[in-house]
Amino acid sequence: MKIVVVFKWARNPLDARVSADAAISWPGVKLAASDDDPAAMEIAAALAAGDEVVGLTIGDGDTAWAAARGAARTVVVTDAPGETDSAATGAALAAAVRRMTGVGAVLIGDSAWDYAVVSALAGRLGWPAVAGVTAACPERGELRVTRRLGAATQALSAAGPVVLAVTANRAEKNVPGMKEVLAARKKPVEKITAADLNTASRYQVQTQGVRFPDTPPARIIDGGDPPTACEQLIAALRTDGVI
């Protein structure tokens, strides 16, 4: 089954720089693979069972990430809109998938960096979609998909083509070495632009401003003297009525 894996479609919010006036900047920060991207890639490689895995990404960063993990080729939407307009990012990704034929499943990391892109991709494709996926394997011509739902684990059958948003439950185990990365850079990369995809939107989004949340800062207690620190904490918890 031909599988598309979407990777490196957001920047890590941890890398955002917040200045004293709450302004956000991203000095030198590129789109990055989230913790969930390797999990999506791993399931994709297993599902493909020797068929083609195509990496799909946006922006102008290093495109070898999926290729180094087994993707035969990579498609890049070089100017897909990002950040504020997540629906447009999702729409561009969906349109890029539609250009390909014979795709059985699209896998994307179900990353809390921006859940909106995941929703938009699934919605724009209009395929059956499951989020919070932790495993998937072929079963009787369909896919058996496992996902976490709160404190429960649920198994679903999914008849393709489907979108699976995969959530990682561990760190990547087999990180590719330099050899794989160098070989990956020789694999084909197709660059397309948003203009090629014709994804017009009927809405406009515009940032109006940023501010700090008005939640009170934590009360920090010096734990150098444990008895005093604990005494202060217990007193505070009593005042709050939680003990």
Binding site: P13, I24, Q204, T207, Q208, V210, R211
Partner: peptide, 13 residues
């Protein structure tokens, strides 16, 4: 935004 450090107001038409 930025891991909850900041609130961003976005106007949507």
């Amino acid at each position: 935004a930025a891991e909850g450090k900041v609130l961003e107001d976005i106007a949507v038409s």
